[in-house]
């Protein structure tokens, strides 16, 4: 699998990471190299194998749908780069 600059652009967009034009070739080569190394997995026959997402052999526990915590607005906002009137603040998105 080779990765071209257009693919890097697409991935960077999806990942919301600005990649400058001049950096794209470097990322393409590095990611392409890693993906090429990963291709060796194709040598393994995985027909009929159930994918393993978690090693925990337990069912996730259920609990009552009630409030167990809260009233922590100042703590939650404490590290925000910008907060106003008890909310996180972001650049305007609606004109």
């Amino acid at each position: 699998m080779t990765i071209d600059n257009a693919t890097v652009t697409k991935i960077a967009n999806l990942a919301r990471i600005r990649v400058e034009e001049g950096e794209k070739a470097k990322y393409a080569a590095q990611i392409g190299g890693i993906m090429q190394w990963i291709e060796q997995l194709n040598a393994v026959n995985t027909d009929g194998v159930e994918p393993l997402a978690s090693v925990m052999d337990i069912t996730l526990p259920l609990r009552r749908d009630v409030v167990t915590d809260g009233d922590k607005q100042p703590e939650i906002l404490a590290n925000a780069p910008e907060a106003t009137s008890g909310f996180f603040a972001v650049p305007k998105i609606v004109e």
Partner: peptide, 13 residues
């Protein structure tokens, strides 16, 4: 970190 985020984004796309 950027490299790994981008690889992860790619394999999940």
């Amino acid at each position: 970190v950027k490299r790994r985020i981008m690889i992860g984004t790619y394999v999940l796309s």
